[in-house]
Design a protein around this nucleic acid. Structure first.
Lengths: 207, 207
DNA sequence: GTCTATAATTAGATAGAC
DNA sequence: GTCTATCTAATTATAGAC
């Protein structure tokens, strides 16, 4: 049946182009931060001209939001897939395994650390948007997964949260420092597992 | 007695000017990161013209090194003053108090976090210079102050170090996120003390 | 030692051809 | 939908007056 088309031009592979641009933006914003990342470099990596960016994203700010949506979408997907497979042995061990999975996710996607830190030290419109749109829901999930067990007291929840986030992700966020200082390369599999164990046992001591 | 002057022009208040420039540079590099910080803004805050910067510092890179020297000098001074006053009760409590002091120092100087993170995710000439010049000696001090007690095993030293650094400093480095997410302002005195206690007890459980 | 002026490059955003 | 060309503003670094 012939329906009326609301989309005038069928957009042949525009979605793919848009996706490539967003992918390049994630890399650039993670590597350089919002201000130092350049739209020309993003376009170059995506294999398009700089003028095209403003067709898909009216401003650098909107491109940044799209990149942020992308990277936090990756996080949600990773967490959903991994948490579903947790068996419920005893609650402490379940919480420890959730923490290990969180460490592995941070190791595999160091872009998170960069996005969060790049915005987090300020308190502007982007910071508020990031927290309200993505971080609040992530916080809720971490509470479900036993963050209170690590905090022990309700009023220590913020301290437990940011201690966990910092302990879990810092080593991957400053991997250059770690390599130069200790000789340990935190991108290697054994290092990731060792860190996951260390942080899990730190936050929720066994025994 | 009339000695020969090696300094042709006595530099009336050049040292003070230089110090103001470095102070402004610390702020700018911490706030924006190396690339996004602008020398014009630094000059404006220091109350001089941009052309003068290259008289005192031939390049942006050398200005960054001077700013880094300044901020790590502050760290060394703070640590030296505080560690000297630690009484040696039992070794565990001494290590916990050292950790509390470290947390307080990070809270009072969030610029550290920014300098370390801004360079640490790369592995370039500035990263190597920063680690070799300033971070290695800081690492040695932390080992002295009982870092091995937190690590428990020699081979976990890197994990203990970066867990401690992350747990201690992250909340202050992303204070905007923390405020928006939890309502807790980590710049306040009570919050700093609560975090110091939490991290100290986390790294070295009492009892 | 400090400032003024400017060169050379690059930034984000816009207009219009196709 | 994509590209080319261009505008305006900001960047670091340099040259030279005082």
């Amino acid at each position: 049946m012939a329906t009326t088309r609301t989309r005038r031009t069928p957009a042949p592979h525009a979605d793919a182009t848009r996706a490539r641009i967003v992918g390049a933006a994630v890399k650039a914003f993670a590597e350089k931060g919002f201000e130092a990342a350049s739209t020309r470099e993003i376009a170059r990596v995506a294999g398009v001209e700089q003028g095209l960016l403003t067709y898909h994203f009216p401003s650098k700010d909107e491109l940044w939001r799209a990149a942020t949506d992308r990277i936090f979408g990756v996080l949600r997907k990773a967490v959903a897939g991994r948490v579903a497979s947790l068996d419920d042995a005893d609650p402490s061990e379940r919480s420890r395994e959730a923490i290990r999975e969180y460490v592995r996710t941070m190791a595999g996607n160091p872009e998170f650390f960069r996005f969060i830190v790049d915005q987090g030290h300020r308190y502007d419109a982007r910071t508020r948007w990031l927290v309200d749109t993505h971080i609040k829901s992530a916080f809720a999930i971490m509470k479900e997964l036993g963050l209170l067990r690590a905090a022990r007291r309700e009023e220590d929840l913020p301290h437990a949260l940011f201690s966990l986030l910092g302990a879990a992700s810092f080593i991957f966020g400053v991997q250059g420092n770690c390599r130069r200082l200790t000789g340990l390369d935190p991108r290697k599999r054994e290092a990731i597992e060792a860190h996951a164990d260390f942080v899990a046992n730190l936050m929720i001591p066994p025994g």
